[in-house]
Design a protein around this nucleic acid. Structure first.
Lengths: 337, 337
DNA sequence: ACGTTTCGAGAAAACGCTTTCTCAGGATTC
DNA sequence: GAATCCTGAGAAAGCGTTTTCTCGAAACGT
């Protein structure tokens, strides 16, 4: 913070000197404390304006015990879902005068705990976004990170609110949608094995299987990226499925692209669904049928929960589940006969 | 910072007490100062470990005059370009133990100065990303924000390095590419009027015009989003152009989508180019011909410049211009005869 | 054996602010 | 007119570190 820059930043002392009052009075004026004589207050304000004085936030933070900053830990900043959460969080927090500090764990789950701890110490609160760490570690870490809110993950620690998307329900609805179009051979192109949201989807599909014993449902290994979808095209075609549930929109788009290259028509020859409804989903050709998650709102709600926790460390929000909304577009159609 | 959380965070004093030494000694040990008796150092480390002591970064920041944090101000976090810059910056800074604080001005240029100032005061340095503010204001602000680096903008202040993409060159190459395919009627779907990068493209097109007097080049008003491109479809068709230079990939994709809805074939009926080569560009149908900007690298380089400035406030980097690389894909083709 | 370095660790100042404590001096009361 | 109450502003004590200063004791040299 530029002490090295020869010209020392001007501080409260300079203003006090110039206005001929004490540090304390300057502080009072700057913070709108009304127990100051109007004339003196004006003199202080003039001095501050003339010197272009801006209180040093670090000093304030130390004195006040708060930083007006929150942290967010994401597994991968390249993922549009996390980008959208970050954006929602950042916008909402900004409204209340809070800034956000980002920490990207690059999907390295062992880094998460350290990053989270470091971020938490610099901030007034934390948002942990789809942490990849194990349940035990999360459980152990949770108390030391409070106040914090979890996204797409939960813990038994009662003071930690969870915001979760009902992936199980969403994927079931997508599967039902394919069934309603006459598909009886469906494949699920799975996501990262460690991902909690992938497990939730799996659980949903097991339910679906139970209530649709006549439908053939295959599980294919996959990932969470474009490339995953693109590379899976041969496997998908080999499976003989007429409908494919991709882990998310990114994978679906990769698959779409791969199928296009193979001259396979969507949805005439094969139907594809995504998940998330990222901004690009509606602009693919054909537009992607998907389960829309109000993801920016999720970020916004994360802030509101965190704000409640910060303001009153006692009263946590109850957990919240977001229901995805089926968004039927052009990438699904009646099964070819 | 959790003073309200009944159980006060444990500080250096607790460790000192437990180890039976002074604050100073604990600090020395924690910072790897070797002028401490090994036996005592070990005692301190044990005490610290047992109490799970972690130094308070705010206290450190105040004492050291640095926060190990940098700020980035972007006009719109929803824009993939800025997301990519942020990602590159964040990854690179993390390598050196720095975190990044984000500030989104929501394209409101009057907010930029305030946001930038606030961010700067909390951080050791600043990256100002394609600021929308006027030249005069930028010029005036620059000294107070140092150390800072500019992206896609420049200033006469010599201590402020600029990292710029050569949009002028890129758009010329795209135009030449269309010409080489036989197009003689070209339209430019422009970006936001205030955007410096739009002005650069305009300048490039003027050069192009000068060296290609036989080519008809129309300017159409636009913007920087999907929607812009989507809405421009009628105007584009009305222009009669056989080749369209979209402001960026987003606009191109919106246009692509709109043309598809109108049953206009790309590239058979009309050729489209984007700009930036965002990750999705290669996955549209047809894949987008565009000018690839190494945007994540740009963020990375921004950190390197800023790091140099932070480490030695004297020696600024020279400015750097990034040359876009023509990425020819399926959205451009020979003019229909 | 005595004076002079060197070494290691504690005391205290600094960082820049907020806030409690304290105490003049003017206003109020009887 | 003296005792009491406000009011407003300065002095000083934090907040949690780092770092300079200081000083006793041990090590060294003669």
């Amino acid at each position: 913070m530029g002490r090295r820059t020869g010209t020392r930043r001007i501080g409260i002392a300079d203003v006090a000197l110039k206005a001929g009052v004490s540090h304390a009075t300057v502080s009072r004026v700057m913070n709108g404390n009304f127990t100051v004589d109007p004339a003196i207050a004006q003199r202080v304000r003039d001095a501050a304006a003339e010197l272009n004085y801006q209180p040093n936030p670090v000093g304030r933070s130390l004195a006040l015990g708060k930083t007006d900053t929150i942290g967010i830990v994401v597994p991968d900043l390249a993922n549009p879902t996390f980008q959208a959460i970050l954006r929602g969080l950042s916008m909402a927090a900004a409204q209340d005068g809070y800034r956000v500090l980002i920490a990207d764990s690059s999907e390295v789950s062992s880094e998460e705990a350290i990053l989270a701890g470091e971020a938490r110490r610099r901030c007034d609160g934390l948002v942990l976004c789809a942490p990849r760490m194990g349940d035990a570690e999360l459980e152990e870490l949770a108390p030391s990170l409070h106040p914090m809110v979890l996204i797409n993950r939960s813990t038994t620690e009662t003071r930690v609110p969870s915001l979760e998307v009902d992936y199980s329900q969403g994927v079931q609805e997508l599967a039902e949608h394919l069934v309603s179009l006459g598909h009886t051979s469906i494949a699920f192109l799975a996501g990262p094995a460690r991902s909690a949201s992938n497990r939730a989807r799996m659980a949903g599909l097991n339910k679906f299987r139970a209530s649709n014993p006549d439908v053939e449902l295959r599980m294919l290994e996959g990932g969470s990226s474009f490339e995953t979808g693109h590379e899976a095209v041969n496997e998908v075609l080999a499976s003989g499925a007429t409908g494919v549930l991709a882990f998310n929109d990114l994978v679906a788009m990769g698959l779409l692209s791969g199928l296009h290259e193979h001259g396979v028509r969507v949805p005439e020859d094969i139907s594809i669904t995504g998940f998330d409804d990222i901004p690009f989903a509606r602009y693919t050709t054909p537009p992607l049928t998907t389960a829309a998650v109000p993801i920016t709102e999720l970020g916004e709600r994360a802030w509101h929960s965190l704000r409640a926790l910060i303001r009153n460390a006692e009263a946590p929000d109850e957990d919240t589940t977001f229901q995805p909304r089926l968004e039927i577009r052009g990438s699904t159609g009646p099964v070819s006969t």
